[in-house]
């Protein structure tokens, strides 16, 4: 088993949160500074969550690619009206696939065909679920946005 040569990132973040909460905040009396300190605790907790998770959008983009591929297979006219999928090693893959997703949602707002039904049943819920997952990660920052950091770990 290898020995750690330095404190872990999580330990540094936890130490920072503890210091702000228990040493700095009790001595801060300016309202704006107290609010900022509470928000900073929320941001450090967000940092802990980010450090332990996946910071790239690769898996989300792969899921979108699969859904769009299936949409194009079922409704070939979509590809010509919305745009081609990029190659999977494209430098701008994420950007292009998200752009295609935008175009497909806009298509669904304007058309009432079977392709729209599939966009609304397969693509849109996936995009909403990605949004909700990202939003959930930010909850420590939202909880402390008013300046109240709450207790140390919740």
């Amino acid at each position: 088993m290898s020995e750690l040569k330095r404190p872990t990132l999580d330990e540094v973040l936890v130490g920072s949160i503890d210091t702000i909460q228990n040493m700095l905040l009790p001595n801060l009396h300016d309202t704006w500074a107290r609010t900022a300190a509470g928000q900073l605790i929320g941001m450090l907790r967000y940092g802990r969550a980010l450090a332990s998770g996946d910071e790239s959008v690769d898996s989300e983009v792969a899921e979108l690619r699969t859904v769009i591929t299936n949409l194009y297979a079922a409704h070939p006219h979509l590809e010509s009206s919305v745009g081609e999928l990029p190659s999977s090693n494209s430098e701008n893959e994420a950007f292009i696939i998200l752009d295609l997703s935008s175009n497909l949602l806009n298509y669904a707002l304007k058309e009432t065909d079977k392709a729209t039904e599939m966009i609304l049943s397969d693509l849109r819920p996936l995009l909403v679920s990605h949004l909700e997952a990202s939003l959930a990660e930010t909850s420590p920052m939202l909880m402390s946005f008013g300046g109240d950091p709450g207790d140390a770990e919740h």
Binding site: A36, L40, G42, Y46, L127, L131, S134, L135, T138, M141
Partner: peptide
């Protein structure tokens, strides 16, 4: 780089977008 900017640009932006969607 204040923490309110990080919260507004991520969580607050997304909570409003969730409501819209």
């Amino acid at each position: 780089m204040a923490p309110n900017m990080a919260a507004i640009g991520t969580g607050l932006h997304m909570s409003m977008l969730q409501r819209i969607s």
